[in-house]
Design a protein around this nucleic acid. Sequence first.
DNA 1: CCAAAAGTGTTCGGGGTACACCCATGG
DNA 2: CCATGGGTGTACCCCGAACACTTTTGG
Lengths: 229, 229
Amino acid sequence: MAKLFHEYKNPSLAVDLVIFGYHDNTLSVLLLNRKEEPFKDCWTLPGGFLQMEETFLGTCYRILKTKTGMDDVFLEQLYSFDNPGRDPRGRVIAVGYYALINPARFNIIAGSMANDVKWFDVHKMPKLGFDHRDIFQLALQRLKSKILYDPVGFELLDELFTITELHELYECILETTIDRRNFRRKILDAEYVINTGTKREGLQNRHPELYKFNKKLKKNSFQINVNVS
Amino acid sequence: MAKLFHEYKNPSLAVDLVIFGYHDNTLSVLLLNRKEEPFKDCWTLPGGFLQMEETFLGTCYRILKTKTGMDDVFLEQLYSFDNPGRDPRGRVIAVGYYALINPARFNIIAGSMANDVKWFDVHKMPKLGFDHRDIFQLALQRLKSKILYDPVGFELLDELFTITELHELYECILETTIDRRNFRRKILDAEYVINTGTKREGLQNRHPELYKFNKKLKKNSFQINVNVS
DNA sequence: CCAAAAGTGTTCGGGGTACACCCATGG
DNA sequence: CCATGGGTGTACCCCGAACACTTTTGG
């Protein structure tokens, strides 16, 4: 055996991140404005190349850390994208991941690669470079179906939250209305959340109870039903 | 810019296939017995390296064609596997795909890379090389959840099939019993199938009606419910 | 006539949906 | 005391689950 494997020509491997954040009843995605060609001055998903020794998650955290200052977030692999024309520099395969974060926890910083880092409402996305629109759309679709049966919504909220806040989050992501009382019953019956006994103070009306996520809860132990349109 | 992208060191990219076939009330997976190191004489999933100009599906079809003589089958991307130790030859990323085929349609041939090509009952799998057991298990899990809401079962059957055959397929894959009458009603109500008006001949009992898949049927237009264990 | 599998309808119960009133708080 | 949003209970209906008898065919 003459050559080592990596000495053959191989496509490059990039990891691209769809970072979802939720704030003010708005679901947003974090985009970078590129300082370099290709797609200079275009908005793109944060991404980076996989290093030889790195895992995908390793790359994800490197991107999150250096470009946005984040760590310890929910990450899930989305899909791998192989369109031969997706990167004008050559053959690049992209492994898409999506992240769910609470923007309040982090100070977003513009890294060295980007002019600017900004949250965009998922309904007001700019034109994206590469095939990032495809990646974004798949991620959004995945998130929408995932929150129906997997308790991931809390990743986007503060550690303590009210049922109403969780309810609004679901309505925002699913773009529909959900009966408030039925939602509450289902979430409580499924033990999605644990009542902390504390209340949110300082409001001009009744103080809602604060809950935290029940970490023992398993996937598929509840099911939110929505009119599929 | 001095170097072209692919001249940097990159991990190799392999595509590994979990090929499901159904026959005699048994769900099987096609495995190759390797002629070469690593994992010489071990059973593995069919796979191959992505060529620079190739798409993932291109690689899939190349593998299917050269190793098994198949084409025109259902293929879906499963997941990408990045465990740094998964291939003893060096850093190899694997993109997993799974295929659903009707074994009756093809003559399986042992290609030049393999000692042997064989179907294995999913419940009687041998020890697999690389991380192929992980890939296989994820594929099986995906198939089990997919047939509940996406009409893919027919991919494993002949073009014309009876409701009973479809019913047995579901019971076999899901490893459970499903009420025959409720299943039939649900499949017919959802217009999963179209009655061809012909009947299966030559049986010693009542001749069942033959159906074909309704190609207009969309995902999520039905839902099989099963006791989740 | 018998064995074997195909085909068909009805009943019952649980869960999902729809819906309205009282409560707590700050101003 | 009023405005605002939080918290709670019930009735109905639909869908899913359970279930048994008749029909067709070959031998």
